[in-house]
């Protein structure tokens, strides 16, 4: 990237209307250029004013409740965030199916009983590379096995796959398996862990060469904590 300012391109960049190559060039320059950063901020402020000028419509009252339910301190049950929209409800069905395949119908039935429901779940959130991605990991009651379901992860070229990393308290990373996602960004993985899953406090997902790597090499796209 040359050192010239990218002032002419900043309006289109603020609007996210550049093509990918142009965007990358502007991004690189702006990151290192306080002048262009300040200019960009001014354009973004102008767009915020535009956002405020749209006709104001009162949202339904239930929306506030739905928003707040998403962030209530973690519940023992399924994360509300994944249940909150009909669009994602089928993800839950897929989770249940996979869990039942992985762990056996008896365990599933047991998990649906009110009292001994001891499956644990870990929500994985997308990083900057995949801000919309969501993931849910279900860990069996004894902590030994689990299943991962993700949605809205960008599909990868054929020579790349996503790889789940199980992160020990000392930072050591073990592979939990590799997976791909369909065109809609949906994918699932029955986790293969060298040790009981419950012993890993943190989890991450990176982009790796197809088949996986011995250790993470590509960019991290999602992360979560037990």
């Amino acid at each position: 990237m040359n050192q010239e300012h990218v002032l002419d391109q900043l309006p289109a960049y603020a609007l996210d209307a550049l093509n990918p190559e142009e965007r990358q060039g502007v991004e690189e320059h702006v990151r290192a250029c306080p002048t262009c950063q300040a200019e960009l901020t001014a354009y973004l402020d102008a767009l915020a004013a535009l956002a405020q000028a749209v006709p104001a419509v009162e949202p339904p009252a239930r929306l506030r409740q739905a928003v707040m339910e998403q962030v209530r301190p973690s519940r023992p049950s399924w994360p509300v965030a994944l249940l909150s929209s009909a669009r994602l409800a089928w993800s839950l069905a897929a989770v249940l199916l996979l869990v039942s395949l992985a762990l056996g119908g008896a365990l599933l039935l047991q998990s649906l009983q009110p009292e001994p429901a001891t499956f644990r779940s870990v929500t994985l959130l997308g990083d900057a590379a995949a801000p919309d991605a969501r993931g849910l990991m279900i860990i069996s009651p004894d902590g030994s096995t689990g299943t991962l379901v993700v949605d809205d992860l960008p599909p990868l070229p054929e020579d790349r796959q996503y790889q789940l990393w199980l992160i020990q308290p000392d930072g050591e990373r073990a592979s939990g398996g590799v997976f791909s996602v369909d065109a809609g960004g949906y994918g699932a993985l029955v986790i293969e862990a060298p040790r009981p899953l419950a012993e890993y406090p943190r989890f991450g997902i990176t982009v790796e060469p197809a088949g996986g790597s011995p250790g993470p090499t590509g960019p991290r796209v999602m992360a979560g904590e037990l």
Binding site: P55, P60, V67, Q70
Partner: peptide
């Protein structure tokens, strides 16, 4: 909340989608 919802509505013209966007 109203700004976010109204902006989503201005873009999608769909009340259900706008609720989803707001959440």
């Amino acid at each position: 909340g109203r700004l976010v919802y109204s902006l989503a509505l201005a873009i999608t013209n769909d009340a259900g989608l706008s609720e989803e966007v707001s959440q």
